[in-house]
Design a protein around this nucleic acid. Sequence first.
DNA 1: CGCCGAGTTGAACTGAATCAAGAAACGTGG
DNA 2: CCACGTTTCTTGATTCAGTTCAACTCGGCG
Lengths: 190, 190
Amino acid sequence: MFDVFEKYLRSKAAFTAEELEQIQAVTTIKKLRKRQFLLQEGDVWTYNAFVAKGCMRIYSVDAKGVEHVLGFAVENWWTGDLQSLASGQPSRFNIDAIEDSVVLLIKKENFEHLRQIIPALHELVNAILHRSFLAQQSRIHTVISSSAEEKYRAFLQDFPEFARRIPQHMVASYLGMTTETLSRIRRNLV
Amino acid sequence: MFDVFEKYLRSKAAFTAEELEQIQAVTTIKKLRKRQFLLQEGDVWTYNAFVAKGCMRIYSVDAKGVEHVLGFAVENWWTGDLQSLASGQPSRFNIDAIEDSVVLLIKKENFEHLRQIIPALHELVNAILHRSFLAQQSRIHTVISSSAEEKYRAFLQDFPEFARRIPQHMVASYLGMTTETLSRIRRNLV
DNA sequence: CGCCGAGTTGAACTGAATCAAGAAACGTGG
DNA sequence: CCACGTTTCTTGATTCAGTTCAACTCGGCG
């Protein structure tokens, strides 16, 4: 499964064969079955995680037991809890697999070290952060200024493939509405 | 006003006197009166902007003429439209001064050049992106999982000083609710 | 085959928006 | 420094989008 990662890396920046080997040396492969946790609330997250196959979901559970989906990650996306990673504090989130998945893990210390010695990796991290920032800003903009239907339309626009792969009740939660509302919106859409 | 910026930079990383001079050489100072625009929808944003004094607001205007506030920036914060900056496309946002303000501007090309030759600046940019990412994630989490009152409580928690400085109708817009709703929440709070 | 989670539908309810009007606060010019 | 117009904020009445509750259907999996 490292080949997926290697292909991804090569597509993003010019890595030497040696650098790729260095990366591979500290990468571990984790297979997850559908519904299996990668991270549970209360645990400290200490990895950088690349999704090589499948689909992950990050979410929190509130006092009433309701799940709130913060985001998804499919092939060639990264996942994890940056907050917990940076602070060393227990995570408030859960990450689990929506499908049978394969995730590549690099321990925080190893990743930091690689980031120091491989300029291309350093740049890649910046680029990802930058892109994520823009994506989040766009999401915030949509959330504070749109109706439920508009939010779903924007979601379809931004992530057409997600609508197919991801259970509707999770999409609804991601959009900040109930399953019933999303169901009704879909009925009046097609 | 550059001294404010210098103080900020020194507090964030170890800059040499020479580096600070290089930065100063490409920094221009812009004073803005209350309500004055720093950026208007349709313009291309080509700067990095540091707020040395005062308070800025970034917002969009929808088809109905309603304003939606994406964020604020007070002293020692950065502002601008990263989307437009990165893509070279016209901005969908407006940025204006909420108070009489002073903003320091560095042209994109100059900033990029400095970022290449000053490692501390490079690190600073990363740190800011990282922090902004976490802040945005937290905001998204609040928005999709909280009632209007909870959102306002979280806002007071996160930015107590904003509640004093920023007009309520802008806060309401930032939180994705109407002025009237915020007014009623405040009444039932104190 | 039967069960269970996911999705749909309907009816009643409610939190927040809208509409409308007045009261304060603010800034600008005389 | 005061007066007047303009924003900003508040309050009440009404409406509506979206939630909640509840029942039912469908499809997949054990």
